[in-house]
Design a protein around this nucleic acid. Sequence first.
DNA 1: TTATCATATAGACAGTTATCTATATGAAGG
DNA 2: CCTTCATATAGATAACTGTCTATATGATAA
Lengths: 99, 99
Amino acid sequence: MNYIDFALCYKALGDETRVKIFDMLKSGEKCACKLLDELNCSQPTLSYHMKMLSDCSLITTRKEGKWCYYSVDINILKELSKFILSTSNTKMEKCCEKD
Amino acid sequence: MNYIDFALCYKALGDETRVKIFDMLKSGEKCACKLLDELNCSQPTLSYHMKMLSDCSLITTRKEGKWCYYSVDINILKELSKFILSTSNTKMEKCCEKD
DNA sequence: TTATCATATAGACAGTTATCTATATGAAGG
DNA sequence: CCTTCATATAGATAACTGTCTATATGATAA
């Protein structure tokens, strides 16, 4: 994953509705209609948010008949968490220092 | 931290330039002018991004004379990481299940 | 085949974001 | 006090986002 990938994932989590959806999915796979029950938004709006979360691979979709089941991808979560906590290798020369 | 706080932090990280800045700061405190050297943006644009990262408490600012030094707040990072990896307590009734 | 149900897509639109240039602020040095 | 330097703010603007209603798609049931 590069900076663009990370930014896409964080952007996907950077919305109150989606972070709520994400939190719900962490406890296990959920049907779209169940998510809709818990959120104050229309069905197309939920669909839009699920697309954002899917496009960056944060969640996976399983279709069964006319239902959609969503779940979080644990591997991506580990990468995100690792990125947040890891120490960067970025080396920089000092500048505008007084000492 | 509630959903809104988390969403603000992730939104702050949801931009390629800012995720890059964040990565640079992980290796230690940096001066604004050094960050500017490494990025392809104007000084006011950097200032804008630093404000976004500060407003959600992801980074802290230390002023010394006319220079600004930025660094990441490790406590917030731990919270973000914990949120990503933790299992939600959200309990939901099953719905539209076939079995 | 037709109706129904779950989900996705299209189109519209107000609000937000990322960027720039120009300018202000505030510290340090002469 | 005036100049210079680092950073912040203001204002403009094009692009993007989140939301809605209306409609399409695609699966299941009658």
